[in-house]
Amino acid sequence: MDHAPAAPSPAAEAKAAPRLAADADEAALTRLHPHYAHALRIEALLAAIPALVAALVIEAALRDAALLPPGLIAGAVLVVALVLVIRVPLRRWQARGYHLGADRLRVVRGVLWHSDTIVPFSRVQHIDVSQGPLERLFGIATLTLHTAGTHNASVALPGLAEETARAMREAIRAHIRREEL
């Protein structure tokens, strides 16, 4: 897990922000910290290990039955796991981004299921900055904005450098005033 994700090429940049409209909300997105891709990789790896072990066990159990050519199941699982560990985290990282506006935060995510959320600061109820063990290892943090809405009751923005997350929290907190619902 030591190879750094490829520097964002212009093509990838265009993919992350597909259509640039004149609208301020379509301004260029800020990428997440590259360590986020590493964290995603480790996460995928941890999830893949049990599946690999299970595949090996099945291989061993079916060896005598000779139903399938040896190595087919484990090989297939290995290929899927490799894709999930190497390719998918990079794509997920590329698909994510955010834009901190003067009065709103835009959070973009999703490779297949794309979502593009804007939360006006005046509607933020409270803010969390959280770090899981993996995130702490990589020095990144998740910023979560809570709103009073039932949909998007909390909008999470993971993969920020820790100090960025804290700075953003302070920036947004400056906007929050007690407001009647």
Partner: peptide
């Protein structure tokens, strides 16, 4: 929206450039 927003923004931006 006015004053504290801009100050806070610059703080956030410095954080961004740090990252």
């Amino acid at each position: 929206r006015a004053v504290p927003a801009d100050q806070a923004m610059s703080a956030a931006q410095s954080g961004l450039s740090a990252s």
